[in-house]
Amino acid sequence: MSVLHSLRRLSDQINQVAIVLCVGCILSMLGISFTAFLYKLVTGSTLSWTYSLARLFLPWIGFLSMTISLRYGEHVAMTLLVRSLPKILVKAAAVMCLAIMGLFALMLTWYGWGYFTNATQVYMVSDQIRIPSKVTAIVVPISGLIMLLHLVHGFALLEHFISGHEVIDELLETTEGETRS
């Protein structure tokens, strides 16, 4: 088994873990919010800590879902513009896109690590619940590392750049045929 194949398998496995973590964070947020709703419904008063605690899951959801969408090629792209270019420019755009994503992932990792190590505040969710800001700050460099790992998939992350000219041509022909009728 080649090193590249092993890294791709590791990328897929880490992506599955990220999916489970995102779902867990969303379910936790919903559980906390539902608890607050039921408590308010039953007692008439509110729990002061529910909003603050649920909000701490948002960075994890945002950053991990960014890595998941990258793995499945669901990132922002100018597909129609790129597909209208000659094939050599499409490949050049794909390489440039991968390089920019790699640079972004490196910056997330580098600056995110500094952000994590300098995070010294404590979130006061309630009098009893105190959560260090490192808990939310660590997701920044982790997501950068995951994105770097996903880059081992190369052009597979950018399938819409390389293939699909026929789909656009078919759509254009269908639209032209409908306007003529």
Rank of each mutant, 00 (worst) to 15 (best):
L80Q: 14
Y115N: 03
S69Q: 10
T79N: 13
V152I: 09
L80Y: 15
L171M: 06
I168F: 06
L80K: 15
I162D: 03
G24P: 07
W60N: 06
P86H: 13
Y39V: 02
L145R: 05
A93M: 15
R83Y: 12
E173A: 09
M124F: 05
Y111L: 05
R71E: 11
I142C: 04
K40T: 04
L98Y: 14
P141M: 03
L21I: 15
V17I: 14
G112M: 10
F155S: 04
T174N: 04
Y51N: 06
G154K: 09
K134Q: 13
H75E: 09
G31R: 07
K91T: 13
M78W: 15
Y115M: 03
I168H: 03
L47C: 00
V23S: 00
N15T: 14
G144N: 04
L30H: 08
Y39R: 05
Y111S: 00
L27W: 00
E176S: 06
S6V: 08
S65Q: 08
S2C: 06
I26C: 10
T50F: 06
A94S: 15
S11N: 10
Y123W: 13
E166F: 09
C25A: 09
G114V: 02
G62T: 07
M107R: 02
L4Y: 08
I61K: 02
L64W: 14
L149K: 11
E170F: 12
D127G: 13
W49F: 14
F161Q: 02
I100A: 07
G62I: 00
I131P: 05
S45Q: 09
E159H: 09
G31H: 08
T120Q: 14
R8P: 04
T120N: 13
Q16V: 08
I129P: 05
H75W: 09
F104G: 05
S181Q: 13
I142M: 12
R130A: 07
V17W: 01
W110T: 02
I131A: 05
V76S: 07
T67R: 01
G62A: 10
M124E: 10
V17R: 02
H165E: 10
T79Q: 12
M96A: 09
F37M: 13
L30D: 02
E176K: 11
L148Y: 05
A105L: 09
Y115E: 02
L81N: 07
I26E: 04
T175G: 07
E176F: 01
K91H: 15
P59V: 10
S48K: 01
V167L: 09
S163L: 06
R180S: 08
L38K: 07
G44P: 08
M1S: 08
A156W: 13
L158T: 07
A18M: 14
Y123G: 03
M78A: 15
S126W: 13
Y123N: 12
L10H: 10
V122M: 13
N15P: 03
S181H: 12
S181E: 08
Q128M: 07
F155G: 00
H150C: 05
Q13A: 14
T46E: 14
F34D: 02
G44R: 00
T50G: 02
L151N: 09
A105Q: 11
M107K: 12
L108W: 00
